[in-house]
Write a protein that binds this DNA or RNA. Structure first.
Lengths: 234, 234
DNA sequence: TGTATTTTATTTGTCGACAAGAATTTCCGC
DNA sequence: GCGGAAATTCTTGTCGACAAATAAAATACA
């Protein structure tokens, strides 16, 4: 499934076995290589990564803690489903965290923070230019995570990153039907947000982040609606 | 250390071993039976609970995911420290979650929710009456968790409960010096919040929750300041 | 006596194995 | 042929053991 799996299977230092399998599983889940509902076979995984079941189970416990997998007692553990019925709670939390983290960044950012944020924005712009939807999703995540880091509230960054990851999963679903023609608008909006953070203009940062979040929510909802129509048409 | 440990050591169903040790450790950590910085000896725990190290390690991984313990690679795992230098980030997040969850509860509460909330409030009032500080802390947590549940946003309830737990740890530290004469004011404030939720008055709920949060933050800061003075006096 | 170095001891991370539950298949009565 | 009980296969949760990594102790040396 994952290339990294077969690659460095032999030489692995003691103590990083759990992190190894955790990273692989996490990536595969967020990239939908393992779609929601997929059962995760411990034995099979252990064979493929040529390691014991113990570190794999510990990685699964960690993933379960983050809500990425669900462990049915005495039954198989499966990749967590996306709760489409309650997506509004996701959008609500997402919007709030966009606002809060951007506000805090405008208050607390250092010069170094700005530099990091700009670097992420550049990666994002490049992804948009090259029409690489998947890279764009990842870059967008890193961009906003960098802003959250600049806000220096680990409680917010924790929840926000979790939400961004969940969003990555949702977007992956619809970016197959989306024709990779990515709106340049997001790049501009990001630039505006950076400007507000640099100017330490908290209110502007809040307003822009709020508008940006609304954009994204609207886009996702539109994609869902389009997908619904398509399914009915079939 | 914990009574429950020695109690039902023999008969334990398969599959609940991890939850068993998780609950014990969690309680001990939040009640400061295991103070911050305490090393957790896997072997010792295994002997005391008469079980293998495997389920204990999985419980520790889970606790590490919630930030309650810190695992130093190839070294012992210790109970996480309370970051007093950055308490303001805690207060900030706490206040926001108080507001958001109470707002949502005012929007989405059902009759059943109100009943649960009222029950928790009664327990809280009883704890205040009997001057039982420790019971009050726990009841307060349950009261606000019930409100958050009524808001029906798992992302918010997740973060909020984590914050409430961390607050429980912080309060425990200072309630030894606090003379158990608990302010009746909190009971009244809770009643006001309930009334706003019942009336579905979102703005009032927000305002009251905000004021309530400020109260609590102020009280904690006051306790810290008093403690500082006391330490200097000694 | 104090410091550097080797030796010992403790503790962690990982492994293979086994037994309890669940899922599946087989077998039997109708 | 079909529904249900018994047996089998599979998977999970737990265990004891071992080896790497670290901490502690003992020894050598200046």
């Amino acid at each position: 499934m994952n290339d990294k799996a077969t690659a460095s299977q032999a030489e692995r230092k003691r103590g990083e076995g759990v992190k190894f399998v955790y990273d692989i599983l996490r990536d595969d889940i967020l990239d939908l290589v393992l779609p929601p509902g997929s059962p995760i076979d411990e034995v099979q995984l252990a064979e493929r990564l040529s390691m014991s079941r113990t570190p794999i189970r510990e990685a699964l416990v960690r993933l379960a803690g983050e809500g990425l997998v669900t462990t049915l007692p005495n039954r198989s553990t499966v990749v967590s489903n996306i709760d489409f019925l309650n997506l509004h709670t996701f959008f609500d939390a997402m919007t709030l965290m966009y606002r809060v983290t951007t506000r805090l960044a405008a208050q607390a950012r250092t010069a170094a923070d700005l530099e990091t944020i700009r670097a992420r924005q550049q990666e994002f712009a490049r992804a948009v230019e090259t029409h690489d939807a998947l890279a764009m999703i990842a870059a967008n995540r890193d961009f906003h995570a960098a802003i959250a880091e600049a806000g220096r509230n680990p409680y917010y960054t924790g929840l926000f990153c979790r939400l961004l990851d969940e969003g990555r999963r949702i977007l992956r679903i619809y970016y197959s039907s989306f024709d990779d023609h990515l709106p340049h608008r997001y790049v501009v909006e990001h630039e505006d947000i950076i400007a507000a953070i640099e100017a330490r203009d908290v209110e502007a940062a809040d307003r822009l982040a709020s508008a940006h979040a609304d954009q994204i929510v609207r886009q996702i909802q539109e994609m869902i609606a389009r997908d619904r129509r398509q399914q009915i048409a079939l």
